[in-house]
């Protein structure tokens, strides 16, 4: 299962690059506009970068335990019951996100068969930027499935960031 973890982290790195790309793109756009020029469809490209950044980072965020859940009830449970609740929650999320990944794949596949193009200044086939959504959501479902399996096997599910965790306490 170390392989999946590397995969999730690799995608997380792509997500970070995507965010960096948005910043560079917007700063260039501001600079170019001041010089009387522009990057056509910069707003579209930035928006697509954001979609990629969010989706590609979903699995890496999960394995570091950064996604928010309400654990108040869970903390009241005895240890065994709590463990079962954790397994059920992870399995439920795996199924739910599996369906989400499937629906997103269907949507992007449709973009491809319908030849959908963007409506902005530059016409781009939309399935290109939308592919990141597919990759991210599939891996996110996989991450929940992996989590379920790890919980059943009694393996740790959340790796601490090697960098600063940066909690305000």
């Amino acid at each position: 299962m170390m392989l999946t973890r590397h995969l999730f982290n690799f995608c997380g790195a792509l997500a970070a690059l995507s965010l960096l790309g948005i910043a560079v793109l917007i700063l260039s756009q501001i600079g170019l506009r001041l010089m009387g020029s522009q990057i056509p469809s910069a707003d579209d490209f930035a928006a697509w970068g954001l979609s990629a950044s969010i989706f590609l980072a979903l699995p890496a965020t999960l394995i570091r335990g950064d996604h928010i859940r309400v654990t108040s009830l869970r903390q009241l449970m005895p240890k065994r019951l709590g463990h079962i609740a954790d397994i059920l929650a992870a399995a439920f999320a795996a199924v739910m996100m599996g369906w989400v990944a499937w629906a997103i794949f269907g949507y992007v596949h449709e973009s491809w068969t319908y030849n959908e193009v963007s409506q902005g200044v530059v016409a781009v086939p939309l399935w290109w930027p939308q592919s990141a959504m597919v990759l991210g959501s599939v891996l996110f479902a996989l991450a929940f499935a992996e989590r379920t399996l790890r919980l059943i096997l009694g393996l740790p599910v959340e790796s601490d960031d090697t960098n600063e965790q940066g909690r305000g306490e």
Binding site: I22, A46, A47, G106, Q130
Partner: peptide, 19 residues
């Protein structure tokens, strides 16, 4: 529901103002 899910995910993640 599957069609509207894809539409919503794309329309709300690929958002300029959200950047």
């Amino acid at each position: 529901v599957d069609a509207i899910l894809g539409t919503t995910m794309w329309a709300h993640s690929a958002s300029w103002t959200l950047t």
